[in-house]
């Protein structure tokens, strides 16, 4: 579904050119749960921005569902981004003074979808927040805020959910809850998830781990996922 070929990303800072990505090639198929790992400055966030069409590669080709999206005009890119990708950030990035329901409606406003309220409510139910629809961010715990953000990214039925350190601000128990939610979405709803993290405890939920260093992919390994090593009934919600 996603095909990256020889992607490079160069930033000009002052006079020096910084190569954030160099010769990155990556294929992601539907239903995969990929963890991108690497130390700070290894280019994993840049990779996620390019995957999510927030940023454009300086070199290489990006095929999404078979068509080259690297050279599309800005506004086309914005529309495509709204429909095809859902973002989850470490800092939740919810808007202040808006209820959970309104937060989740937001992407639908820009798509001009009818039936926004019902679809937003359904997405919140899917992440287990059926009793928090009218709450504002300040009235929600960190884990709940991140669930609202996940509902906001799910509401458009995206091809790919992109998460950048989604549990970076959460405690271990909440982290496990959220990661199980991701796994469940991949398993039962066929969602594709790409998680950027440097926590092995997060990466172990993924079926595939891509390791990066200095703007290059240095390892790409598939493995059994966490819950597949356990007996049935012990995992999931």
């Amino acid at each position: 579904m996603i095909v990256l070929r020889d992607i490079g990303r160069v930033y000009q800072t002052g006079g020096a050119a910084v190569h954030a990505l160099e010769g990155v090639s990556l294929d992601v198929d539907r239903g995969e749960f990929v963890a991108v790992m690497g130390p700070s400055g290894s280019g994993k966030t840049t990779l996620m921005n390019i995957l999510g069409l927030l940023d454009r590669p300086s070199a290489g080709r990006y095929l999404l569902g078979g068509s080259d999206v690297a050279r599309l005009p800005d506004d086309t890119l914005a529309r495509l981004r709204g429909r095809a990708f859902g973002f989850v950030f470490q800092s939740y990035n919810l808007l202040p003074r808006m209820t959970a329901l309104e937060q989740v409606e937001l992407p639908l406003i820009y798509q001009g979808t009818a039936d926004r309220r019902r679809r937003a409510a359904e997405a919140l139910v899917r992440v287990g927040l059926h009793d928090r629809l009218g709450h504002q961010p300040t009235e929600l715990s960190g884990g709940e805020q991140q669930r609202v953000a996940i509902a906001r990214s799910l509401v458009v039925d995206p091809l790919v959910l992109l998460a950048d350190e989604p549990t970076g601000a959460l405690d271990t128990a909440t982290e496990a809850d959220l990661m199980r939610l991701f796994s469940e979405l991949v398993e039962n709803h066929g969602l594709t998830v790409v998680v950027v993290t440097h926590e092995p405890s997060v990466a172990r939920y993924a079926g595939r781990i891509v390791k990066m260093r200095d703007g290059r992919i240095i390892e790409d390994s598939r493995r059994l996922r966490e819950w597949e090593t356990h007996a049935p009934g012990e995992v999931g919600r």
Binding site: R81, L106, P107
Partner: peptide, 16 residues
């Protein structure tokens, strides 16, 4: 600024 970033991420065009 942050609000604009969030709106852009969820699909708002520059025109929006």
């Amino acid at each position: 600024t942050r609000e604009v970033g969030i709106r852009r991420a969820v699909g708002a065009t520059t025109r929006d």
